[in-house]
Design a protein around this nucleic acid. Structure first.
Length: 574
DNA sequence: GCCGTTTTCGGCCCGACTGTTTTCAGTCG
Protein backbone atom coordinates (compact mmCIF):
# COMPACT_ATOMS: atom_id res chain seq x y z
CA UNK A 1 0.00 0.00 0.00
CA UNK A 2 1.52 3.26 -1.19
CA UNK A 3 1.57 6.44 0.89
CA UNK A 4 -0.47 8.36 -1.63
CA UNK A 5 -3.16 5.68 -1.66
CA UNK A 6 -3.53 5.85 2.11
CA UNK A 7 -3.60 9.64 1.91
CA UNK A 8 -6.31 9.46 -0.77
CA UNK A 9 -8.41 7.21 1.45
CA UNK A 10 -8.32 9.67 4.34
CA UNK A 11 -9.09 12.57 2.05
CA UNK A 12 -12.12 10.74 0.71
CA UNK A 13 -13.15 9.83 4.23
CA UNK A 14 -12.97 13.49 5.19
CA UNK A 15 -15.00 14.53 2.13
CA UNK A 16 -17.70 11.99 2.86
CA UNK A 17 -17.91 12.96 6.52
CA UNK A 18 -18.08 16.59 5.52
CA UNK A 19 -21.05 15.82 3.34
CA UNK A 20 -22.70 14.20 6.32
CA UNK A 21 -22.08 17.30 8.36
CA UNK A 22 -19.82 15.59 10.88
CA UNK A 23 -17.75 17.44 13.43
CA UNK A 24 -15.47 19.96 11.76
CA UNK A 25 -12.47 19.13 13.91
CA UNK A 26 -12.73 15.43 13.29
CA UNK A 27 -12.78 16.08 9.56
CA UNK A 28 -9.84 18.38 9.87
CA UNK A 29 -7.95 15.68 11.76
CA UNK A 30 -8.46 13.26 8.86
CA UNK A 31 -7.43 15.91 6.35
CA UNK A 32 -4.36 16.66 8.39
CA UNK A 33 -3.48 12.97 8.57
CA UNK A 34 -3.84 12.74 4.78
CA UNK A 35 -1.55 15.71 4.33
CA UNK A 36 1.03 14.39 6.76
CA UNK A 37 1.04 10.93 5.17
CA UNK A 38 1.36 12.35 1.68
CA UNK A 39 4.31 14.36 2.94
CA UNK A 40 6.27 11.53 4.53
CA UNK A 41 9.49 10.70 2.76
CA UNK A 42 9.40 7.13 4.02
CA UNK A 43 6.82 4.43 3.26
CA UNK A 44 4.00 4.40 5.81
CA UNK A 45 4.05 0.63 5.70
CA UNK A 46 7.68 0.58 6.81
CA UNK A 47 7.06 3.02 9.67
CA UNK A 48 4.09 0.94 10.74
CA UNK A 49 6.10 -2.28 10.83
CA UNK A 50 8.81 -0.53 12.80
CA UNK A 51 6.22 0.74 15.27
CA UNK A 52 7.20 4.32 14.50
CA UNK A 53 3.94 5.45 12.98
CA UNK A 54 2.37 6.69 16.20
CA UNK A 55 5.22 9.17 16.54
CA UNK A 56 4.12 10.96 13.39
CA UNK A 57 2.25 14.13 14.37
CA UNK A 58 -1.44 14.01 13.54
CA UNK A 59 -1.62 10.23 13.75
CA UNK A 60 -3.23 9.09 16.98
CA UNK A 61 -4.81 5.90 18.17
CA UNK A 62 -7.80 5.90 15.82
CA UNK A 63 -6.07 6.89 12.63
CA UNK A 64 -3.27 4.46 13.38
CA UNK A 65 -5.83 1.66 13.67
CA UNK A 66 -7.33 2.63 10.31
CA UNK A 67 -3.93 2.64 8.65
CA UNK A 68 -3.17 -0.75 10.16
CA UNK A 69 -6.45 -2.02 8.79
CA UNK A 70 -5.60 -0.75 5.32
CA UNK A 71 -2.14 -2.28 5.38
CA UNK A 72 -3.38 -5.61 6.65
CA UNK A 73 -6.64 -5.99 4.72
CA UNK A 74 -6.28 -3.52 1.86
CA UNK A 75 -9.54 -1.85 2.86
CA UNK A 76 -10.99 0.54 5.43
CA UNK A 77 -14.36 -0.54 6.74
CA UNK A 78 -15.51 2.88 7.77
CA UNK A 79 -14.75 4.23 4.32
CA UNK A 80 -16.55 1.34 2.65
CA UNK A 81 -19.61 1.95 4.81
CA UNK A 82 -19.70 5.63 3.96
CA UNK A 83 -19.28 4.90 0.27
CA UNK A 84 -22.26 2.57 0.47
CA UNK A 85 -24.32 5.05 2.43
CA UNK A 86 -23.64 8.25 0.50
CA UNK A 87 -24.90 8.46 -3.06
CA UNK A 88 -22.07 8.23 -5.55
CA UNK A 89 -21.70 11.37 -7.56
CA UNK A 90 -22.08 13.61 -4.55
CA UNK A 91 -18.32 13.90 -4.15
CA UNK A 92 -17.80 14.95 -7.74
CA UNK A 93 -20.38 17.66 -7.25
CA UNK A 94 -18.46 18.89 -4.23
CA UNK A 95 -15.43 19.15 -6.51
CA UNK A 96 -17.07 22.08 -8.24
CA UNK A 97 -15.87 25.47 -7.10
CA UNK A 98 -18.57 27.10 -5.03
CA UNK A 99 -20.21 23.81 -4.11
CA UNK A 100 -19.40 22.57 -0.65
CA UNK A 101 -21.06 19.94 1.51
CA UNK A 102 -24.07 22.11 2.35
CA UNK A 103 -25.02 22.94 -1.21
CA UNK A 104 -24.28 19.39 -2.33
CA UNK A 105 -26.72 17.98 0.19
CA UNK A 106 -29.22 20.71 -0.68
CA UNK A 107 -28.99 19.69 -4.33
CA UNK A 108 -29.32 16.07 -3.45
CA UNK A 109 -32.24 16.66 -1.15
CA UNK A 110 -34.27 18.74 -3.59
CA UNK A 111 -33.25 17.44 -7.00
CA UNK A 112 -31.78 14.02 -6.23
CA UNK A 113 -28.83 14.82 -8.49
CA UNK A 114 -26.77 11.71 -9.07
CA UNK A 115 -23.64 13.26 -10.47
CA UNK A 116 -22.15 15.92 -12.69
CA UNK A 117 -24.08 14.97 -15.85
CA UNK A 118 -27.29 15.05 -13.91
CA UNK A 119 -26.50 18.37 -12.31
CA UNK A 120 -25.58 19.94 -15.61
CA UNK A 121 -28.86 18.84 -17.14
CA UNK A 122 -30.86 20.29 -14.25
CA UNK A 123 -28.89 23.52 -14.36
CA UNK A 124 -29.57 23.88 -18.07
CA UNK A 125 -33.25 23.22 -17.44
CA UNK A 126 -33.16 26.08 -14.91
CA UNK A 127 -34.21 23.81 -12.10
CA UNK A 128 -31.26 24.59 -9.83
CA UNK A 129 -32.45 28.14 -9.19
CA UNK A 130 -35.61 26.73 -7.67
CA UNK A 131 -33.65 25.22 -4.80
CA UNK A 132 -33.95 27.47 -1.75
CA UNK A 133 -30.75 29.39 -1.16
CA UNK A 134 -29.53 28.99 -4.73
CA UNK A 135 -30.14 31.43 -7.54
CA UNK A 136 -29.67 32.04 -11.23
CA UNK A 137 -26.09 33.16 -10.77
CA UNK A 138 -25.11 29.98 -8.99
CA UNK A 139 -26.82 28.03 -11.73
CA UNK A 140 -24.73 29.72 -14.40
CA UNK A 141 -21.56 29.17 -12.33
CA UNK A 142 -22.38 25.49 -12.09
CA UNK A 143 -22.72 25.16 -15.86
CA UNK A 144 -19.50 27.06 -16.45
CA UNK A 145 -17.54 25.09 -13.88
CA UNK A 146 -18.76 21.74 -15.14
CA UNK A 147 -17.56 22.73 -18.60
CA UNK A 148 -14.17 23.58 -17.13
CA UNK A 149 -14.05 20.24 -15.34
CA UNK A 150 -14.87 18.46 -18.60
CA UNK A 151 -12.05 20.15 -20.42
CA UNK A 152 -9.50 18.77 -17.98
CA UNK A 153 -11.12 15.38 -17.53
CA UNK A 154 -9.25 12.31 -18.57
CA UNK A 155 -5.86 13.78 -17.80
CA UNK A 156 -3.91 13.31 -14.62
CA UNK A 157 -1.10 15.37 -13.16
CA UNK A 158 2.40 14.30 -14.09
CA UNK A 159 3.26 13.92 -10.41
CA UNK A 160 0.53 11.32 -9.92
CA UNK A 161 1.26 9.61 -13.23
CA UNK A 162 4.90 9.19 -12.26
CA UNK A 163 3.97 7.72 -8.87
CA UNK A 164 1.68 5.21 -10.53
CA UNK A 165 4.22 4.42 -13.25
CA UNK A 166 6.88 3.84 -10.60
CA UNK A 167 4.59 1.47 -8.71
CA UNK A 168 3.87 -0.56 -11.86
CA UNK A 169 7.51 -0.64 -12.94
CA UNK A 170 8.51 -1.89 -9.51
CA UNK A 171 5.85 -4.58 -9.76
CA UNK A 172 6.96 -5.75 -13.21
CA UNK A 173 10.70 -5.37 -13.23
CA UNK A 174 11.52 -8.56 -11.37
CA UNK A 175 8.96 -10.77 -13.07
CA UNK A 176 10.52 -13.71 -14.90
CA UNK A 177 11.60 -12.89 -18.44
CA UNK A 178 11.47 -9.12 -17.97
CA UNK A 179 14.85 -7.68 -18.86
CA UNK A 180 13.90 -4.05 -18.65
CA UNK A 181 10.82 -1.89 -18.22
CA UNK A 182 10.29 1.85 -18.22
CA UNK A 183 7.64 4.53 -18.68
CA UNK A 184 7.43 6.05 -22.14
CA UNK A 185 5.03 8.48 -23.78
CA UNK A 186 4.23 11.78 -22.15
CA UNK A 187 5.42 10.55 -18.75
CA UNK A 188 8.90 10.13 -20.17
CA UNK A 189 8.68 13.49 -21.92
CA UNK A 190 7.61 15.10 -18.62
CA UNK A 191 4.47 16.72 -19.98
CA UNK A 192 2.60 18.55 -17.24
CA UNK A 193 -0.45 16.32 -17.56
CA UNK A 194 -0.78 12.81 -18.90
CA UNK A 195 -3.62 11.05 -20.70
CA UNK A 196 -2.68 7.39 -20.62
CA UNK A 197 0.36 6.02 -18.85
CA UNK A 198 2.54 4.08 -21.30
CA UNK A 199 5.05 1.44 -20.27
CA UNK A 200 7.45 -0.54 -22.41
CA UNK A 201 8.95 -3.86 -21.35
CA UNK A 202 11.82 -5.80 -22.88
CA UNK A 203 10.89 -9.46 -22.92
CA UNK A 204 10.70 -12.50 -25.17
CA UNK A 205 7.66 -13.79 -23.36
CA UNK A 206 4.96 -11.11 -23.37
CA UNK A 207 2.19 -13.59 -22.55
CA UNK A 208 3.78 -14.41 -19.25
CA UNK A 209 4.34 -10.76 -18.39
CA UNK A 210 0.79 -9.78 -19.31
CA UNK A 211 -0.74 -12.53 -17.20
CA UNK A 212 1.17 -11.32 -14.14
CA UNK A 213 0.48 -7.67 -14.95
CA UNK A 214 -3.26 -8.25 -15.18
CA UNK A 215 -3.07 -9.70 -11.68
CA UNK A 216 -1.81 -6.44 -10.24
CA UNK A 217 -4.15 -5.49 -7.37
CA UNK A 218 -4.90 -2.08 -8.90
CA UNK A 219 -5.99 -3.37 -12.29
CA UNK A 220 -9.74 -2.94 -12.49
CA UNK A 221 -10.61 -3.82 -16.06
CA UNK A 222 -8.83 -5.11 -19.14
CA UNK A 223 -9.64 -2.87 -22.09
CA UNK A 224 -7.57 -4.63 -24.73
CA UNK A 225 -5.22 -7.54 -25.00
CA UNK A 226 -3.12 -8.24 -28.06
CA UNK A 227 0.04 -10.11 -28.86
CA UNK A 228 2.39 -7.30 -27.87
CA UNK A 229 0.30 -5.03 -25.65
CA UNK A 230 -2.35 -4.85 -22.98
CA UNK A 231 -4.45 -1.89 -22.06
CA UNK A 232 -6.11 -1.67 -18.66
CA UNK A 233 -8.18 0.69 -16.60
CA UNK A 234 -6.89 0.95 -13.01
CA UNK A 235 -8.47 1.64 -9.65
CA UNK A 236 -6.45 4.84 -9.67
CA UNK A 237 -8.78 6.03 -12.43
CA UNK A 238 -6.06 6.04 -15.08
CA UNK A 239 -5.65 3.99 -18.23
CA UNK A 240 -2.33 2.19 -18.56
CA UNK A 241 -0.94 0.62 -21.68
CA UNK A 242 1.86 -1.92 -21.39
CA UNK A 243 3.78 -2.64 -24.55
CA UNK A 244 6.22 -5.52 -24.91
CA UNK A 245 9.11 -5.81 -27.33
CA UNK A 246 11.89 -8.38 -27.79
CA UNK A 247 15.41 -7.03 -27.16
CA UNK A 248 16.20 -6.37 -30.83
CA UNK A 249 13.06 -4.26 -31.23
CA UNK A 250 13.14 -2.56 -27.87
CA UNK A 251 14.94 0.68 -28.77
CA UNK A 252 12.93 1.46 -31.88
CA UNK A 253 9.81 0.74 -29.85
CA UNK A 254 11.01 3.05 -27.08
CA UNK A 255 11.57 5.87 -29.55
CA UNK A 256 8.21 5.25 -31.18
CA UNK A 257 6.18 5.09 -27.99
CA UNK A 258 7.94 8.03 -26.38
CA UNK A 259 6.81 10.32 -29.20
CA UNK A 260 5.70 12.93 -29.51
CA UNK A 261 3.88 11.93 -32.64
CA UNK A 262 5.05 15.08 -34.45
CA UNK A 263 8.66 14.58 -33.42
CA UNK A 264 8.52 10.97 -34.57
CA UNK A 265 7.01 11.91 -37.94
CA UNK A 266 9.86 14.34 -38.49
CA UNK A 267 12.33 11.56 -37.73
CA UNK A 268 10.55 9.29 -40.19
CA UNK A 269 10.74 11.81 -43.02
CA UNK A 270 14.40 12.44 -42.17
CA UNK A 271 14.97 8.68 -42.43
CA UNK A 272 13.21 8.52 -45.77
CA UNK A 273 15.49 11.19 -47.15
CA UNK A 274 18.37 8.93 -46.20
CA UNK A 275 16.80 5.94 -47.90
CA UNK A 276 15.74 4.37 -44.61
CA UNK A 277 12.44 3.29 -43.18
CA UNK A 278 11.86 4.08 -39.49
CA UNK A 279 9.17 2.04 -37.75
CA UNK A 280 8.51 0.83 -34.24
CA UNK A 281 10.31 -2.38 -35.20
CA UNK A 282 13.55 -0.88 -36.43
CA UNK A 283 15.47 1.11 -38.95
CA UNK A 284 15.39 -0.65 -42.29
CA UNK A 285 17.51 -0.12 -45.40
CA UNK A 286 16.07 -0.28 -48.89
CA UNK A 287 17.54 -3.77 -49.31
CA UNK A 288 15.37 -4.89 -46.39
CA UNK A 289 18.19 -5.22 -43.88
CA UNK A 290 17.79 -3.75 -40.41
CA UNK A 291 20.52 -1.50 -39.05
CA UNK A 292 22.05 -2.49 -35.75
CA UNK A 293 20.42 -0.55 -32.94
CA UNK A 294 21.43 -1.04 -29.31
CA UNK A 295 20.18 2.21 -27.87
CA UNK A 296 18.03 5.18 -28.84
CA UNK A 297 21.27 7.05 -29.49
CA UNK A 298 22.03 4.66 -32.35
CA UNK A 299 18.83 5.55 -34.15
CA UNK A 300 19.47 9.25 -33.84
CA UNK A 301 23.06 8.70 -35.02
CA UNK A 302 21.93 6.82 -38.11
CA UNK A 303 19.73 9.80 -38.89
CA UNK A 304 22.64 12.20 -38.47
CA UNK A 305 21.41 13.54 -35.16
CA UNK A 306 22.71 13.68 -31.60
CA UNK A 307 20.60 12.05 -28.89
CA UNK A 308 17.63 14.30 -28.24
CA UNK A 309 16.38 14.20 -24.65
CA UNK A 310 12.71 13.18 -24.33
CA UNK A 311 11.75 16.58 -22.88
CA UNK A 312 12.65 18.22 -26.18
CA UNK A 313 10.78 15.83 -28.44
CA UNK A 314 7.82 18.08 -29.22
CA UNK A 315 8.69 19.22 -32.74
CA UNK A 316 9.36 22.73 -31.59
CA UNK A 317 12.43 23.16 -33.72
CA UNK A 318 14.64 20.66 -31.90
CA UNK A 319 15.44 18.61 -35.00
CA UNK A 320 16.22 21.68 -37.09
CA UNK A 321 18.42 23.02 -34.31
CA UNK A 322 20.37 19.76 -34.03
CA UNK A 323 20.84 19.49 -37.80
CA UNK A 324 22.05 23.06 -38.06
CA UNK A 325 24.26 23.16 -34.97
CA UNK A 326 25.39 19.55 -35.00
CA UNK A 327 24.63 19.36 -31.29
CA UNK A 328 21.69 19.29 -28.95
CA UNK A 329 20.75 22.45 -27.02
CA UNK A 330 22.60 22.50 -23.72
CA UNK A 331 20.01 22.01 -21.02
CA UNK A 332 19.90 22.60 -17.31
CA UNK A 333 19.70 19.37 -15.30
CA UNK A 334 18.95 18.43 -11.72
CA UNK A 335 22.61 18.09 -10.80
CA UNK A 336 23.17 21.75 -11.66
CA UNK A 337 20.78 22.87 -8.94
CA UNK A 338 22.72 24.10 -5.92
CA UNK A 339 19.87 24.95 -3.61
CA UNK A 340 16.17 25.52 -3.06
CA UNK A 341 15.02 29.10 -2.57
CA UNK A 342 11.37 28.59 -1.65
CA UNK A 343 10.60 26.44 1.40
CA UNK A 344 7.98 26.68 4.15
CA UNK A 345 8.56 25.54 7.72
CA UNK A 346 6.26 24.81 10.63
CA UNK A 347 6.59 28.46 11.61
CA UNK A 348 3.83 29.06 9.05
CA UNK A 349 1.91 26.36 7.18
CA UNK A 350 4.77 23.92 6.57
CA UNK A 351 4.82 20.55 8.29
CA UNK A 352 8.49 20.21 9.23
CA UNK A 353 10.84 22.04 11.54
CA UNK A 354 13.73 24.07 10.24
CA UNK A 355 16.17 21.48 11.59
CA UNK A 356 14.47 18.66 9.67
CA UNK A 357 14.51 20.74 6.51
CA UNK A 358 18.19 21.56 6.91
CA UNK A 359 19.01 17.88 7.42
CA UNK A 360 17.08 17.01 4.26
CA UNK A 361 18.80 19.77 2.28
CA UNK A 362 22.26 18.63 3.43
CA UNK A 363 21.42 15.10 2.37
CA UNK A 364 20.64 16.46 -1.08
CA UNK A 365 24.02 18.15 -1.14
CA UNK A 366 22.55 21.64 -1.44
CA UNK A 367 24.88 24.56 -0.77
CA UNK A 368 22.03 26.75 0.37
CA UNK A 369 18.31 26.95 1.03
CA UNK A 370 16.03 29.85 1.69
CA UNK A 371 13.37 29.76 4.38
CA UNK A 372 10.43 31.67 2.95
CA UNK A 373 7.38 31.47 5.18
CA UNK A 374 4.18 33.37 4.52
CA UNK A 375 3.64 36.99 5.54
CA UNK A 376 1.33 38.21 8.28
CA UNK A 377 -1.91 38.85 6.40
CA UNK A 378 -2.20 35.27 5.13
CA UNK A 379 -3.96 34.11 8.26
CA UNK A 380 -4.99 30.71 7.03
CA UNK A 381 -1.37 29.81 6.41
CA UNK A 382 -0.43 31.17 9.83
CA UNK A 383 1.61 33.93 8.22
CA UNK A 384 4.39 35.22 10.46
CA UNK A 385 3.95 38.44 12.39
CA UNK A 386 6.77 40.95 12.09
CA UNK A 387 8.02 39.87 15.51
CA UNK A 388 8.00 36.19 14.55
CA UNK A 389 9.77 36.99 11.33
CA UNK A 390 12.52 38.75 13.20
CA UNK A 391 12.72 35.94 15.73
CA UNK A 392 13.00 33.44 12.89
CA UNK A 393 15.76 35.46 11.28
CA UNK A 394 17.78 35.39 14.50
CA UNK A 395 17.07 31.68 14.91
CA UNK A 396 18.43 31.07 11.42
CA UNK A 397 21.58 33.00 12.26
CA UNK A 398 22.13 30.62 15.15
CA UNK A 399 21.59 27.55 13.00
CA UNK A 400 24.01 28.91 10.44
CA UNK A 401 26.72 28.90 13.10
CA UNK A 402 26.32 25.14 13.41
CA UNK A 403 27.08 24.22 9.80
CA UNK A 404 29.81 25.07 7.38
CA UNK A 405 28.51 22.93 4.51
CA UNK A 406 25.21 24.72 4.01
CA UNK A 407 23.92 28.25 4.29
CA UNK A 408 20.38 29.01 5.37
CA UNK A 409 19.13 32.21 3.83
CA UNK A 410 16.40 34.00 5.69
CA UNK A 411 13.58 35.02 3.46
CA UNK A 412 9.88 35.53 3.11
CA UNK A 413 7.12 34.79 0.67
CA UNK A 414 5.42 38.11 1.01
CA UNK A 415 1.86 38.59 -0.18
CA UNK A 416 1.21 41.07 -2.92
CA UNK A 417 -1.79 42.93 -1.52
CA UNK A 418 -4.95 43.28 -3.62
CA UNK A 419 -4.41 46.97 -4.25
CA UNK A 420 -0.70 46.52 -4.93
CA UNK A 421 2.14 46.87 -2.46
CA UNK A 422 3.58 44.27 -0.12
CA UNK A 423 2.39 42.76 3.13
CA UNK A 424 5.58 43.71 4.96
CA UNK A 425 7.28 47.04 5.65
CA UNK A 426 10.35 47.91 3.58
CA UNK A 427 12.72 48.20 6.52
CA UNK A 428 11.97 44.58 7.48
CA UNK A 429 12.34 43.26 3.93
CA UNK A 430 15.65 45.05 3.70
CA UNK A 431 17.15 42.77 6.33
CA UNK A 432 16.21 39.55 4.55
CA UNK A 433 18.37 37.64 2.09
CA UNK A 434 15.56 36.53 -0.23
CA UNK A 435 12.20 38.14 -0.89
CA UNK A 436 9.63 36.26 -2.98
CA UNK A 437 6.47 38.18 -3.79
CA UNK A 438 3.33 36.20 -4.64
CA UNK A 439 -0.41 36.56 -5.00
CA UNK A 440 -2.53 34.40 -2.68
CA UNK A 441 -5.77 36.34 -2.33
CA UNK A 442 -8.39 38.13 -4.40
CA UNK A 443 -7.87 36.23 -7.64
CA UNK A 444 -10.86 37.77 -9.35
CA UNK A 445 -9.35 41.12 -10.28
CA UNK A 446 -9.58 41.99 -13.95
CA UNK A 447 -6.54 41.60 -16.15
CA UNK A 448 -5.45 45.20 -15.92
CA UNK A 449 -5.79 45.46 -12.16
CA UNK A 450 -4.03 42.14 -11.60
CA UNK A 451 -1.18 43.13 -13.90
CA UNK A 452 -0.78 46.47 -12.14
CA UNK A 453 -0.91 44.71 -8.79
CA UNK A 454 1.95 42.37 -9.70
CA UNK A 455 3.88 45.16 -11.41
CA UNK A 456 3.89 46.99 -8.11
CA UNK A 457 5.88 44.08 -6.66
CA UNK A 458 8.19 43.90 -9.68
CA UNK A 459 9.02 47.56 -9.18
CA UNK A 460 9.63 47.19 -5.44
CA UNK A 461 13.32 47.49 -4.75
CA UNK A 462 13.33 44.79 -2.06
CA UNK A 463 11.73 42.05 -4.10
CA UNK A 464 14.04 39.44 -5.68
CA UNK A 465 11.66 36.88 -7.09
CA UNK A 466 8.07 36.81 -8.36
CA UNK A 467 6.50 33.56 -7.12
CA UNK A 468 4.09 31.37 -9.12
CA UNK A 469 3.15 34.14 -11.53
CA UNK A 470 -0.26 33.01 -12.76
CA UNK A 471 -1.56 31.28 -9.62
CA UNK A 472 -2.95 28.35 -11.56
CA UNK A 473 -3.61 25.03 -9.83
CA UNK A 474 -3.61 22.38 -12.51
CA UNK A 475 -6.99 20.75 -12.80
CA UNK A 476 -8.42 22.83 -9.97
CA UNK A 477 -8.10 26.51 -10.67
CA UNK A 478 -7.47 28.44 -13.84
CA UNK A 479 -4.71 31.01 -13.93
CA UNK A 480 -5.94 34.45 -13.03
CA UNK A 481 -5.90 36.89 -15.91
CA UNK A 482 -2.58 38.68 -16.12
CA UNK A 483 -0.49 40.24 -18.88
CA UNK A 484 2.47 37.90 -18.67
CA UNK A 485 4.53 39.65 -21.32
CA UNK A 486 4.17 42.99 -19.62
CA UNK A 487 5.34 41.50 -16.32
CA UNK A 488 8.29 39.75 -17.96
CA UNK A 489 9.34 42.94 -19.70
CA UNK A 490 9.19 44.85 -16.42
CA UNK A 491 11.02 42.07 -14.58
CA UNK A 492 13.84 42.45 -17.07
CA UNK A 493 13.90 46.17 -16.58
CA UNK A 494 13.92 45.96 -12.78
CA UNK A 495 16.30 43.01 -12.52
CA UNK A 496 13.87 40.52 -10.99
CA UNK A 497 13.94 36.76 -11.20
CA UNK A 498 10.92 34.69 -12.13
CA UNK A 499 10.09 31.56 -10.19
CA UNK A 500 9.44 28.24 -11.86
CA UNK A 501 7.39 26.64 -9.14
CA UNK A 502 8.10 22.88 -9.19
CA UNK A 503 4.99 21.74 -7.40
CA UNK A 504 3.32 19.33 -9.86
CA UNK A 505 -0.02 21.06 -9.42
CA UNK A 506 1.44 24.48 -10.18
CA UNK A 507 4.35 24.30 -12.65
CA UNK A 508 4.14 28.05 -12.85
CA UNK A 509 5.81 29.61 -14.86
CA UNK A 510 4.71 26.97 -17.31
CA UNK A 511 7.00 25.96 -20.16
CA UNK A 512 5.66 28.53 -22.63
CA UNK A 513 6.10 31.35 -20.14
CA UNK A 514 9.55 30.11 -19.19
CA UNK A 515 10.56 30.10 -22.82
CA UNK A 516 9.17 33.59 -23.20
CA UNK A 517 11.02 34.75 -20.10
CA UNK A 518 14.25 33.48 -21.60
CA UNK A 519 13.53 35.51 -24.73
CA UNK A 520 13.19 38.53 -22.49
CA UNK A 521 16.66 37.74 -21.16
CA UNK A 522 15.43 36.88 -17.69
CA UNK A 523 16.96 34.48 -15.23
CA UNK A 524 14.63 32.08 -13.49
CA UNK A 525 14.67 30.34 -10.13
CA UNK A 526 13.55 26.72 -9.93
CA UNK A 527 12.01 26.21 -6.50
CA UNK A 528 9.92 23.54 -4.82
CA UNK A 529 7.68 25.71 -2.60
CA UNK A 530 7.88 22.65 -0.33
CA UNK A 531 5.60 22.45 2.69
CA UNK A 532 7.04 19.10 3.79
CA UNK A 533 10.14 16.96 3.30
CA UNK A 534 8.75 14.82 0.54
CA UNK A 535 7.89 17.83 -1.52
CA UNK A 536 11.48 18.96 -1.30
CA UNK A 537 11.95 16.05 -3.75
CA UNK A 538 9.82 17.78 -6.38
CA UNK A 539 12.68 19.80 -7.85
CA UNK A 540 12.84 17.50 -10.93
CA UNK A 541 9.40 18.70 -12.02
CA UNK A 542 10.55 22.31 -12.14
CA UNK A 543 13.76 21.26 -13.86
CA UNK A 544 11.63 19.44 -16.43
CA UNK A 545 9.66 22.63 -17.15
CA UNK A 546 12.96 24.43 -17.62
CA UNK A 547 14.29 21.73 -19.94
CA UNK A 548 11.12 21.70 -21.98
CA UNK A 549 11.58 25.48 -22.26
CA UNK A 550 15.14 24.89 -23.50
CA UNK A 551 16.72 26.63 -20.50
CA UNK A 552 20.44 26.34 -19.98
CA UNK A 553 22.17 26.31 -16.60
CA UNK A 554 23.03 30.00 -16.93
CA UNK A 555 19.33 30.83 -17.31
CA UNK A 556 18.72 29.53 -13.82
CA UNK A 557 19.74 31.52 -10.76
CA UNK A 558 20.02 28.62 -8.37
CA UNK A 559 22.64 26.85 -10.42
CA UNK A 560 25.06 29.43 -9.05
CA UNK A 561 27.54 28.79 -6.27
CA UNK A 562 26.61 30.40 -2.96
CA UNK A 563 28.91 33.41 -3.25
CA UNK A 564 27.72 34.17 -6.76
CA UNK A 565 24.12 33.73 -5.74
CA UNK A 566 24.43 36.19 -2.90
CA UNK A 567 26.03 38.70 -5.18
CA UNK A 568 23.13 38.36 -7.61
CA UNK A 569 20.55 38.76 -4.86
CA UNK A 570 22.27 41.87 -3.56
CA UNK A 571 22.58 43.57 -6.91
CA UNK A 572 18.88 43.27 -7.49
CA UNK A 573 18.17 46.97 -7.19
CA UNK A 574 18.84 48.59 -10.48
C1' DG B 1 -10.18 13.15 15.17
C1' DC B 2 -5.47 14.86 17.85
C1' DC B 3 -3.08 17.00 21.37
C1' DG B 4 -1.30 18.43 25.90
C1' DT B 5 4.90 23.53 30.83
C1' DT B 6 -1.81 18.27 30.60
C1' DT B 7 -3.51 13.07 33.00
C1' DT B 8 -8.89 14.00 31.44
C1' DC B 9 -11.16 17.40 28.85
C1' DG B 10 -11.25 21.61 26.39
C1' DG B 11 -9.13 23.77 22.49
C1' DC B 12 -8.31 23.24 17.87
C1' DC B 13 -6.81 29.15 12.31
C1' DC B 14 -9.57 33.34 10.50
C1' DG B 15 -11.48 36.79 7.67
C1' DA B 16 -13.26 38.15 3.18
C1' DC B 17 -16.30 37.50 -0.41
C1' DT B 18 -20.50 36.29 -2.76
C1' DG B 19 -25.05 35.56 -3.78
C1' DT B 20 -28.85 35.36 -1.58
C1' DT B 21 -30.91 37.70 1.29
C1' DT B 22 -33.02 41.73 4.06
C1' DT B 23 -29.26 40.06 8.16
C1' DC B 24 -26.52 35.95 6.77
C1' DA B 25 -25.01 31.20 5.36
C1' DG B 26 -21.76 28.91 2.66
C1' DT B 27 -17.40 28.71 0.51
C1' DC B 28 -12.69 29.56 -0.01
C1' DG B 29 -7.83 30.52 0.48
Amino acid sequence: MQNFEIAWAFRELADLLEFKGEDFFKIRAYRRAAKVIAGLNEPVELLYRQGELNKVPGIGKNILAKIAEMINTGRMRKLDELRAEIPPGVLEIMDLPGIGPKRASLLYEHLKVAGLDDLEKMAREARVRAVPGLGAKTEQDIIRNIEMLRRRSGRVLLGIAREIARDLVEFCKDLPGVKRIEPTGSVRRWRETVGDIDLLAMTDDPERLFSSFLGHPRVKETLAREEDRVKVFTWWGVTVELLAAPPEEYWPALLWSTGSREHYRQLQSLARRKGLELTRYGLQREDGKFLLVQAEEDIYRHLGLPFIPPELRENRGEIEFCLKEGRVPRLVQLSHIKGDLHIHTDWSDGVNSLEQIVACARKKGYQYIAVTDHSRSLKIARGLSLEQLDEQRRFIEKINEKYDDIRILSGIEVDILPSGGLDCPAQILKRLDVVIASVHTKFNLDRRAMTERILSAVKDEHVNIIGHLTGRLLGQREAYPVDVEKILAAAGEYGKFMEINSSPDRLDLNEEHARLAKEYGLKMVISTDAHDLRRMDEMPYGVAVARRAWLQPEDVLNTLELAELIKMLKTKNK
